[in-house]
Design a protein around this nucleic acid. Structure first.
Length: 419
DNA sequence: TCTGGGGTCCTAGGACCC
DNA sequence: TCTGGGGTCCTAGGACCC
């Protein structure tokens, strides 16, 4: 058996842990730059605020219904996630942390446990120890555990937040209930195709011909079909080293000057370099992209990316910044209003096993320099030491008007209790 | 005015090898 | 008329996830 544990309305729930006065009230959390809604409490969902709703379009509704709006506070959510995962790890030796708010547990050898009760215990303990409400779904395969979890969440009162698919009868009933577009692994494009073929439910999907699925949804779709039929096809995935690392941002306003973009790209490259160093990797290629605002029909559009193979693997902020800004020069065009840019590093290698080239031009002196930079910046705050190319002339600040305190990761933000 | 960020996997087609 | 067979690697693009 597999269990899928999912935190309910995770970001919104994190905000509520330290603001219990918000329980029962509509809460939404916005994306970077306070752009769109990325998390909603049940009360906010009931108001008809959709996922991804642009904040500016819903400002009136927020006001009218006294919705509590938060900027995203990833320091808080990351820390709360670690706490939840820590509690869950006590319930099985085999766990896969699937995302910031989801984990699969393998319940091998627990067939004789009272699983319903086991799920209830998990739920009680996570809520008690972290303040985060969760839903638990269990079934013979991962994708069915996902389905069970949806049922547990949707019918929380009836199920107590725990649902188990443990018979063929329940499996069929669950799959007939689930819309095909809500199946894990079936997105918008595939849903369109499936509905055109009169496939409306997950159950309809499992009745499709293997060859048809393989042709139109690839091997991934076929595996999913088998998994949904109760044939274990998807196993827990072990933690793999990352294949790519990205830092990308939308801007608060449109940028037209090369110098402005250069500062951004340099900063993104430095950020990627820091992420690389924190996991002891170097990268051998780098991708830089820029584009205009696709939502603005009134402005000329331009989007380009460029991949640069590096002559040697590196994680030096200085070197990556240099390569990135050189790349930017190749794709930048005058006369456009740029809204978003990013740097993605790929071809990652272990720092220690770095292959040198015959004519290595990477500067070995950067290594101790980066160590010192990381140390100082960790101790005294981000960007206390930065490159000259990250000019303070262009001070850039993300719009975060409604940021909550970092209750659990910053000493100054710890809550005070008055007795 | 204003619309997120960070990932993964698969396939088809081209280039290349013997 | 008639032009092999079997591979690998790489890349771009498309799909998906939270």
């Amino acid at each position: 058996m597999f269990a899928l544990i999912d935190c309910n309305n995770f970001y919104a729930s994190c905000e509520r842990v330290f603001r219990p006065d918000l329980i029962g009230k509509p809460v939404v959390v916005l994306s970077n730059n306070d752009g769109c809604v990325i998390a909603r409490s049940n009360e906010a969902k009931d108001l008809g605020i959709p996922m991804g709703a642009p904040a500016f379009e819903f400002e009136k509704i927020f006001e009218k219904h006294q919705v509590h709006v938060f900027s995203s506070n990833f320091a808080l959510y990351g820390d709360m996630s670690a706490r939840v995962m820590d509690v869950l790890s006590n319930y099985s030796p085999e766990m896969e942390i699937y995302s910031i708010d989801e984990a699969f547990l393998k319940l091998k050898g627990m067939e004789h446990f009272h699983l319903q009760e086991y799920g209830r215990q998990m739920r009680a303990k996570v809520t008690r120890w972290t303040g985060i409400p969760i839903s638990v779904g269990m079934a013979k395969t991962k994708s069915l555990a996902k389905v069970a979890n949806k049922i547990a969440k949707k019918y929380a009162e009836k199920t107590g937040g725990v649902y188990i698919i443990d018979s063929e009868e329940k499996r069929i009933k669950a799959l007939k209930w689930l819309k095909v577009g809500d199946v894990w692994g079936i997105g918008r494009q595939h849903t369109k195709k499936l509905i055109a073929r009169n496939v409306f439910t997950a159950h309809d999907f499992t009745m499709l011909d293997d060859m048809w699925i393989k042709k139109h949804l690839s091997i991934v779709g076929l595996r999913l079909k088998h998994d949904l039929q109760g044939i274990p096809t998807l196993d827990l995935e072990t933690v793999q080293p990352k294949q790519s690392i990205a830092t990308t941002r939308s801007f608060d306003k449109n940028y037209t000057e090369f110098e402005q973009l250069k500062e951004r790209i340099s900063t993104f490259a430095v950020s990627c370099a820091e992420k690389l160093r924190s996991q002891n990797s170097s990268c051998k290629s780098i991708m830089v992209f820029i584009h205009t605002n696709g939502h603005r029909n009134d402005l000329p559009q331009y989007a380009r990316n460029i991949v640069v193979k590096l002559p040697f693997a590196t994680n030096s902020s200085i070197e990556l910044s240099t390569f990135a800004t050189q790349a930017l020069q190749k794709i930048f065009k005058e006369g456009y209003a740029y809204k978003k840019a990013g740097v993605v590093v790929t071809d990652l290698t272990d720092e220690k096993n770095r292959q040198l080239t015959m004519f290595e031009t990477s500067d070995a002196r950067h290594i101790p320099l980066m160590q010192v930079m990381d140390k100082v910046n960790t101790l005294y705050g981000q960007q206390k030491i930065r490159l000259g190319s990250q000019s303070p002339k262009f001070v850039w600040k993300m719009k975060q008007d409604r940021l909550s305190p970092r209750y659990s990761t910053n000493l100054a933000d710890i809550i005070t209790v008055n007795v």
